[in-house]
């Protein structure tokens, strides 16, 4: 089992409560499952730096990726517009393209 969600929050529209984009690997083709697993492993190997302060940016959008895998505790990776690295940005975009917002979290 592999389920990945992306929550986009904050930014100029700070008060908006947007639903997460969710991808359940069970609903994907074998090829997409492999691609998702590869992107998840890339993020796990190269996580963005932790966001501990607002820094110099203002109205930065926040991103929270939650990964749930069978037999493992859920993992969360947080970033913003200035801290998201390549692995984080690539997986985010993939979730936005493949995920849905209707079914709630994983």
């Amino acid at each position: 089992m592999l389920c990945v969600s992306l929550l986009i929050y904050g930014g100029l529209a700070g008060g908006l409560q947007r639903p997460p984009h969710v991808v359940d690997a069970a609903q994907l083709s074998a090829r997409d499952q492999q691609q998702l697993l590869h992107l998840v492993q890339a993020l796990q190997a190269s996580p963005p730096p932790p966001v501990t302060s607002p820094g110099q940016g203002r109205d930065l959008q926040g991103y929270l990726i939650t990964i749930e895998q069978a037999g493992k505790a859920p993992e969360q990776f947080e970033a913003n517009d200035l801290t998201r690295n390549q692995a984080f940005a690539t997986l985010s975009q993939w979730i936005l393209n493949k995920g849905s917002t209707g079914g709630g979290a994983c």
Binding site: A13, Q56, R58, D59, D81, Q93
Partner: peptide, 15 residues
Amino acid sequence: DKHYQNAYWDGKVMV
């Protein structure tokens, strides 16, 4: 970005 739903100030420029 693609479908980017925000505007921000990074400390020097606007996006």
